[in-house]
Amino acid sequence: MTAPSGRTGRPPLTEARKAEIRLEIARAAVELFVAQGVTATTGEQIGQAVGVSARTVWRYFPSKESCVRPLFSAGIDVIAALLREWRPGHPLPELFDPALTTGLLAATGPDGATGTALVRLTRTEPGLRAIWLQTYDEAEPAFARALADRAGLPADDLRPMIQAAMLNAALRAAVERFAWTEAVADAGVGETVGVAEVAETLRSALAIAAEGVS
């Protein structure tokens, strides 16, 4: 009798399924960080919330703080797509009307109040702060490529690079300011964070950036 050939056991995970698992872990980590703090949260707890082992968590992420990275990174792709679709002659702040901001918040994962609570934690948790800043560092070249594509310029042209740097800094400042506002900080997890308020903060930041330095 000839022995069966080929692989046995579970089929390998697709890249799409791996991305889903990463996002599931990220959302679970955020909920735990916000509910009980980063220090009190373990890899085992994150895994249990998703239904996987701690070993699986560490297979996808090098540290518990890095588990939130997919939620931060998701927004980069959304904003880069918006920049490519930004119509000539239209003010930059119009990128963030309430409808588009709703999609942006949905892409980044948790409900609005939980997401802003996570941003607040980046102020006091060095590990999360490092991931937060690293995400924005990676966003800048993505924004520059989108702006260069839109303008038909080379990827290494200085103009989209400077524009991307200003845009990136404005977005981070706006998100942090919104999250750290006292009224928002007082909102409980699970409460609705006004999409219109988020959109207005982002529009204001972009309007300031568009004015340039005088």
Rank of each mutant, 00 (worst) to 15 (best):
E24G: 01
I25T: 01
A26R: 01
R27C: 09
A28R: 06
A29P: 11
E31D: 12
E31A: 12
E31L: 10
Q36S: 07
Q36E: 12
G37R: 00
G37W: 00
V38T: 09
T39P: 02
T39V: 09
A40T: 06
T41R: 04
T41N: 08
T42P: 00
I46Y: 03
I46Q: 06
G51Y: 11
S53V: 11
A54G: 05
A54L: 07
T56D: 02
T56H: 02
T56Q: 14
W58N: 12
W58E: 07
F61Y: 15
F61S: 06
F61D: 12
P62D: 11
S63N: 03
K64A: 03
S66Y: 15
R69E: 15
S73H: 15
G75A: 09
I76W: 08
I76M: 11
I79R: 15
A80L: 08
A80V: 05
L82K: 14
L82G: 11
L82C: 08
L83C: 10
L83H: 14
L83R: 13
R84I: 02
E85Q: 12
E85N: 13
W86F: 07
G89T: 14
H90A: 07
P93N: 04
F96E: 06
D97Q: 06
A99Y: 05
A99L: 05
L100T: 05
T102F: 05
G103D: 12
L104D: 01
L105M: 12
L105F: 06
A106N: 03
A107C: 02
T108G: 03
P110C: 07
G112V: 00
G112Q: 01
A113Y: 03
A113E: 06
G115A: 06
T116L: 02
L121Q: 10
T122P: 02
T124W: 03
E125P: 02
P126Q: 10
G127D: 05
G127P: 00
R129F: 07
R129C: 04
W132M: 07
L133Y: 04
Q134M: 05
T135Y: 00
D137K: 08
D137F: 04
A139S: 08
P141G: 07
A144H: 08
A146S: 10
R150Q: 07
L153D: 12
A155D: 08
D156Y: 02
P160Y: 09
M161H: 15
M161Q: 15
I162V: 15
